[in-house]
Amino acid sequence: MTQDGLFLSFEGIDGSGKSTQARMLADRLRAEGREVVLTREPGGSPGAEEIRRLVLEGDPDRWSAECELLLFTAARRDHLERLIRPALARGATVICDRFADSTRMYQGLSRADLRAQVDALHDMMIGIEPDRTFLIDMDPETGLARALGRQGVEERFESFGAEMQARMRAGFLALAKEAPHRFRVIDGDRAAEAVARDVWAALP
């Protein structure tokens, strides 16, 4: 794939503030006159949003980790075809709230030992990584309290509790060490403006 635009992702445990930071970065880049596509996963395209509702709503045990992996990969493929690739091809900056690293963590490590299958499906069906991934690092207990405080309908993963949050944080930090050229770890336990300054300084 020829990529003319810039592909950025935000990752972190639930409640880390990554969605806020994605919006703040998008606003700043737009203020500079850049075309920015702000999107999310799972979701971002009509088909992927339908899959999002299937996966994130309902009982925590509704799907096995294997089923989740297939559903998330299908959603990501649709998202890639219909939104991400066209935006990058015309030179836009794509900012994605979660991408494949979340699947590597949730389904690959924290829910089951499926990391090899996650990577194999990613290579086969997706084949792209962000140019830069901002990992907003946060204490697991603080993040969980923030996430549960949202009181939305999409609380399926938050309901797995603090232990999973802690495993997720450790997994994300390990991923950052695997791909130091792509990841930038940002301390999220500060005012949003301070976090945003560090994100801006870490742009590629």
Rank of each mutant, 00 (worst) to 15 (best):
P60W: 07
R62G: 05
G17K: 08
C67N: 12
F183H: 09
L173P: 01
V55D: 02
I13G: 13
R182E: 04
L69K: 07
A116D: 12
E141L: 15
W200R: 15
K177C: 10
L83F: 04
L148S: 14
L54Y: 04
D131S: 08
L88P: 05
G149P: 08
F157A: 05
T39Y: 02
L38N: 04
R169Y: 00
I84E: 02
R197S: 12
D119K: 11
R169G: 02
D123C: 09
I95E: 08
I126H: 08
L6G: 02
R85S: 09
E193T: 10
Q117V: 07
A194D: 15
G15E: 05
P42F: 05
G17N: 06
A74M: 11
G188L: 03
A170Q: 11
Y106M: 06
G161K: 06
E41H: 01
R169N: 02
G44A: 00
R115E: 13
A92D: 04
V118L: 08
D4T: 15
R77N: 12
R182Y: 02
G91V: 05
A120R: 11
R150T: 01
D139G: 07
L109D: 02
I51V: 08
A22L: 09
R30S: 14
A87M: 04
V37K: 03
I95W: 03
D4H: 15
D97K: 09
H79P: 03
P204R: 12
F7Y: 05
R197H: 12
L6Q: 07
R115L: 15
I136P: 05
I136Y: 04
D139N: 13
G152Q: 11
A194Q: 15
E178W: 05
L109F: 13
E35Y: 02
D189E: 15
M164Q: 12
D189P: 07
R52T: 01
A191R: 14
A75N: 06
E193C: 01
G17V: 01
I136L: 13
M24F: 10
D97C: 02
G171R: 03
R184L: 12
G171I: 01
K18S: 12
A65F: 07
A194Y: 11
R104A: 14
W200S: 14
I13M: 06
A191K: 14
R169F: 00
R40K: 11
S64Y: 11
S16R: 06
E49Y: 00
A31L: 05
T73C: 12
S159V: 09
F183V: 14
I95V: 12
T73A: 14
A92W: 06
R77K: 15
Q3W: 07
W200I: 14
R90N: 06
R115A: 13
P60D: 08
R28F: 06
A194G: 13
E163W: 01
P86Y: 10
G12H: 04
A75S: 14
P140C: 13
E163V: 08
S64D: 07
L109A: 13
A179G: 09
E41C: 03
A191V: 07
A201M: 10
G149T: 00
F7G: 04
E35G: 01
T2H: 11
M1T: 09
R169T: 01
M138F: 03
Q107E: 03
